[in-house]
Amino acid sequence: MNAPSGRMVRMAAPLRAAVQRSALVLLIGAALALMVIGKVDEDLARRVRLIATDVAAPLLAVLAEPVAVGRGAVAEARALLLLREENLRLAAEVERLSQWQAVARRLEQENRSYRELLNFVEEPAPSFVSARLIAEAGGPFVRAAIVASGRHDGVLRGQAVVTSDGLVGHVVEVGERASRILLLTDLNSRIPVRLESSRFRAILTGDNTETLRLLFLPGNAEIAVGERVVTSGHGGLLPPGIPIGVIGAIDDAGAVVVPFVDGERLEFVRILRFEPPRLAPGIARALGETAASGD
């Protein structure tokens, strides 16, 4: 075969460059189109994410293992360094909690007798699934995590995810063996909450920063720095009373809440299998009859 002439080479180089440029423009255009499709058809985007998460979960689990070991070693070393301080702190805490224990026992007894008097319907204690965190989507625009438990383990969409410190977030997507958790700090997180002492209700939102914001507080709400924020249980998805955080500051835009959960200790989480309390049979029957007569 003859070698290409100099003229052909001169013509081919700009042509190749033009084709490459067009390919880049086409790919960027396709990616932008996918963004629009993902926005219009969120269910499709969710299904694609689920497939990718399920397929990637085993590899993520393998990669997360040495990270967990490393984090454990760092935590151990830090604990050893602070052993004396930690011992003193724990001794003081035991003393403080012993006093609280006496108060709690008395209140528990009192509560039990009031509940018996009022024939109060107890809410079922939620059971839970323990799940290991295998990925943390700490991107600039998303605050989410992936756990190695899915539909196979009884995880359902909307379930609350907690640690011993408090609420972490809730399950937004459930695959066969892995699930995605939307963290409290994500921009799209909206949790119905209650201020623990003043009992005012509000909606807690994330804004992709490390703190949270209280929205829709009643105009007459008196809020104070240091007040604890807990789930209200409204909407029936999350159990009431799960600690979330504490009001850290109050500014013109409202209250800033600092979450209790420490990301550094986030390794295992509990996914609560919460069923909202059902109406007492008599009330449910009465409501059913009213609805039927109204038809």
Partner: peptide, 29 residues
């Protein structure tokens, strides 16, 4: 190749849960 970057960007979006296509625009760009 740009096509591989496009695919890797899409996978990144799917796994992080970010806007689909954003990672692809970023890497190809």
């Amino acid at each position: 190749p740009p096509l591989a970057l496009f695919a890797i960007g899409l996978l990144q979006d799917a796994l992080t849960g970010g806007p689909p296509g954003l990672g692809a625009v970023l890497l190809v760009g």
